[in-house]
Amino acid sequence: MNDKVRNSLFYVGGTAVGFVSGFFGGGGGMLCVPLLQFGGLDAKRAHASALLVILPICIISAAIYIKNGYFDVTAVLCACIGVVLGGIVGATALDKLNGTAVSIIFALLMIAIGIKSVIA
């Protein structure tokens, strides 16, 4: 693949990451990591660098959602408390768990919640 095609695919992918994040309110990171790997980063660097792409688009999207009236102080506060506490637990537990087991459990969880979202 020549550089020109590669670069344009990279930019198209970037736009898609932004669109998915904005439209669905999340999930852009799941696309951004493979995109950065396609751009030549290893898995760990791709995960870390994806945050740098996702953070500004989350701020922009959040501002537009709030402007459109989708906001609830109590719910947001409760969610932030939960996410931060859970985040600390998850980050600490990561080292102590088997990577394969975790990713299989996570995959099953995604499929189950996906099915529930479609049929509910």
Binding site: S21, G28, P56
Partner: peptide, 24 residues
Amino acid sequence: YVSIAKSAPIVGCAAIGAVCGSFL
């Protein structure tokens, strides 16, 4: 672990995509 060189070029495109997605 953060590669600014690789992520900076797509931030602009991603921002445009995000604005469109959020409005839609």
